[in-house]
Amino acid sequence: MSEAIPAAAIVDPAELGDKPVRAREVWRSLTRDPAALISIIVLVLLALIALAAPLLSPHDPLQTFPDQGLGPQGQPLPPGTPGFLLGTDALGRDLLSRLIYGAQVSLIIGIVANGLATAFGVLVGVVAGYFGGVVEAVLMRITDVVISFPILLLCTALIAVTTRSTFNVIIVIALIYWTTLARIIRGMVVSLKEREFVVASRTLGLSHRAIMWRHILPHLVPAIIVYTTLGVASSILIESALSFLGIGVPIPQASWGQMISDGSTYFQIAPWMLFIPGICLIVTVMAFNLVGDWLSDMLNSSTPTAR
């Protein structure tokens, strides 16, 4: 599915700079890119909200209010209802509270899943690119298999074979998402290992492991930062799709994807159940994308001019 490809595939990883980035330069480039600045603020606020969920949410996100939380025909209450700022869902649960706890779940899944995927993707990419030969052929064929497996079907299959849990969702997303990064990193390493400073340390007798740690990995950091940021956006989207298909985080836990999924059944009578979590999701994913774009711009432009 095309939405699983990070937006930064258009960034040429080879152009990501070697120059260390100083705090002042970061700030200057942020002031030139207000969208990124706003995105960072949004994400920081979101993280704070997710952390402080128990303090901020007016109700228990799982608590149903069969009496005051539902209308006379048992329908969900619209936003603005006293006591339920953003209204309620079909079971009479407070939407605002679910939204706040949902932020927690979506962010944790997005960040942890993508973190695991990054670690694995970098490992596979570096090893395949550096050693080449049979190692590379085997690793890249495995990557091909995973990529050729229809993504959502793979998720479905993996979750079907396990039980539904947040942990499994994280693992599944990570298992799928590492391939993109592995391919990108492999490409970068293939060209990096031919750079003269890498060859030089080989001729000095530096071990393969030391070369990878000291001379290859540090040069991948800018690209990893960019792709990780964009990857969080993709992971959050995948989670929402899984929830929509009914194989995401276990019920009754709230994630934004799960809330949209709940909303999809009732959207004709309670469209806000669909709109509110959807807009939160889009804003978050957009913020991650914008920050990723900004990072790649900034790291690109700090490429030393000498080369």
Partner: peptide, 22 residues
Amino acid sequence: AEYRQTMQMIFQDPYDSLDPRM
């Protein structure tokens, strides 16, 4: 590794032969 140290190499591109991060 031992043999290589008896011999060393100086490369062509001075901008590429040193790790820019070190």
